[in-house]
């Protein structure tokens, strides 16, 4: 039952997706590419590129896209999008409600501190998982990677970087 599987998978992604978009990507990759094989690694990289150029968080964009691709219709898209939002919404509502009580709580603060290196590690895992022979096809790929890495640290607009590397791809690979 593809719809159930899709809903459950994105519920999981929404619930364990700590640390925002890039940290969630390793989980998305694990579930969507490795476990369920709804899309390939290359397609995931393409979705991330598209997501950078369109509004909205990558986790939600990936849910909308993969929901459609996995089921072939709009309802799959809607289902996955709702699924990824549900845990975030419920947890965040509770946290907002009890925030005044939790504010000074040492246990809570230390639990989050403990998760912090993991969140950063998962961003690293996201990058490593996408770094495959299919995405890095030759030395030019590494050159683009290096240039964008440095430019991104220097706070160049990510949309500009995606567009420029797309133009570079057109000039080089056509």
């Amino acid at each position: 039952m593809i719809y159930l599987q899709l809903f459950y998978t994105y519920l999981k992604i929404g619930f364990f997706g700590f640390g925002g978009g890039y940290a969630m990507l390793s989980l998305i990759q694990h579930e969507v590419v490795e476990n369920n094989q709804w899309i390939t690694n290359n397609e995931l990289a393409d979705i991330i590129a598209i997501s950078q150029m369109t509004p909205g968080p990558i986790a939600i964009n990936s849910a909308t896209y993969i929901g459609y691709v996995a089921t072939g219709n709009v309802w799959g898209s809607l289902l996955a999008t709702v699924a990824v939002c549900t845990p975030a919404m419920s947890v965040m509502l509770l946290l907002t409600k009890f925030y005044l009580k939790l504010r000074g709580n040492r246990t809570m603060a230390l639990t989050i501190e403990g998760m912090k290196p993991m969140m950063i590690g998962m961003i690293g895992a996201s990058a490593l998982l996408l770094l495959t022979p299919a995405t890095f096809i030759d030395w030019i790929s590494w050159a683009v990677f290096g240039a964008c890495f440095v430019a991104s640290i220097l706070k160049v607009n990510p949309i500009l970087l995606i567009v420029l590397s797309g133009v570079a791809g057109l000039l080089i690979y056509l």
Partner: peptide, 29 residues
């Protein structure tokens, strides 16, 4: 082929955009 060529250029850029924030985040650890 045009779309494929553009995405060949964009894929490594995406990986770079994901990897770059690690540099700043790790500085605080």
């Amino acid at each position: 082929r045009y779309v494929e060529a553009a995405f060949k250029g964009m894929r490594p850029a995406v990986v770079a955009l994901i990897a770059a924030p690690i540099y700043n985040l790790a500085k605080g650890l």
